[in-house]
């Protein structure tokens, strides 16, 4: 038995579907060269963004990674503005200046994706410091990939946050690879929760394909932070479906491994479970899927029809 209300179930499912369809669509747009540059797609990892961000309030903060579309959507970003940003249009949430790698929406408390691995970790830690100094009861969810675990900034930030008891939940999205290099080959310690031991910080590992498990764990650590007890490290284990980028030959992982994770698809698993336990009906799920598809189509149309930034925009926003 799962304990979830009909409305919550619908909300989780809708967000996960939005993210999946958004990403599948971008893959299309990239192939048609309508979307330019790179986009790191979040398909397969939806349950992490949705489950964790459902555990916080609208006035709480998140900071994201180079794989940031899912976080932006879950934090309440508007699909048309996000899509327009990824296409580099003037109507984008960052006026076309940031793009996929720098999707940010300060109005929703989203302090941005980042082109630098680990680049958000200082921002997340500093937002935690600011929360503490301003004496609000907000919380920061600081996302990063397994790849960021081996950068100095990871250690510097976790140590600082632990010493100063900052209200930050560090969320490691472990999808087994940093580009082509597996955690097995990159990390000396395989039980990633142990990384927190050095900073005397609590840590937990959770199935990142299970939105409810993620939400339960995140809720615990969010309340822990909000209660003034300090930071924590939450490891969410999931899988990136697409290649790292379009040119990725995916020769570092096997088809069998990919299939195993697809078999545990977070959206399918959750919707089937909800239907089985009579929380949602099958027609409801199907209708939702169609509604989301229509929403994504609208977002794409908005983005494609939107104007490019004007030349004078080039020199604007460099300084306040």
């Amino acid at each position: 038995m799962i304990e979830i209300s009909h409305d919550d179930a619908l909300y989780y499912l809708k967000q996960m579907m939005q993210i999946r369809q958004f990403e599948d669509k971008i893959m299309d747009l990239l192939s048609q060269n309508i979307a330019q540059g790179g986009s790191h797609l979040y398909a397969g990892e939806e349950a992490i963004a949705v489950g964790t961000i459902a555990a916080i309030r609208p006035d709480d903060y998140i900071v994201s990674t180079h794989r940031g579309h899912g976080h932006s959507i879950a934090k309440g970003g508007k699909l048309p503005e996000l899509m327009a940003e990824i296409l580099g249009k003037a109507t984008g949430v960052c006026k076309g200046k940031g793009g996929s790698l720098h999707l940010a929406d300060v109005s929703t408390g989203n302090l941005g994706a980042n082109g630098i691995v680990g680049g958000g970790m200082g921002i997340g830690t500093g937002a935690g410091l600011s929360i503490k100094m301003r004496k609000t009861d907000q919380v920061m969810l600081c996302f990063f990939g397994d790849g960021a675990l081996n950068l100095g900034i990871f250690h510097e930030c976790l140590n600082m946050a632990a010493v100063w008891k900052l209200p930050v939940v560090y969320i490691c999205e472990n999808n087994l690879y940093g580009m082509s290099v597996s955690v097995k080959r990159a990390c000396a310690v395989q039980d990633l929760t142990k990384r927190a031991l050095a900073y005397d910080m609590p840590s937990q590992s959770v199935d990142g394909m299970d939105v409810l498990a993620v939400n339960e764990a995140a809720s615990h650590w969010v309340e822990y932070a909000r209660g003034g007890k300090g930071p924590s490290l939450l490891i969410c284990n999931a899988y990136r479906y697409y290649g790292h980028s379009r040119s990725d030959p995916r020769n570092y992982r096997t088809k069998e491994e990919e299939q195993e994770w697809h078999d545990r698809d977070p959206i399918k698993a959750f919707s089937q479970r909800c239907v089985k336990e009579n929380i949602l009906s099958q027609p409801e799920v199907e209708t939702l899927e169609q509604e989301v598809a229509a929403e994504i189509e609208q977002a794409v149309k908005f983005a494609i029809d939107s104007p490019w930034p004007q030349p004078e925009e080039l020199y604007e926003d460099v300084y306040a």
């Binding site: 200046k97 930034p309 080039l314 020199y315 460099v318």
Partner: peptide, 16 residues
């Protein structure tokens, strides 16, 4: 190059 961070939009990038 222009004295700006590189913008994402290809419309601005080519001007930069």
């Amino acid at each position: 190059g222009a004295d700006v961070p590189m913008p994402k939009s290809s419309a601005l990038e080519e001007l930069a």
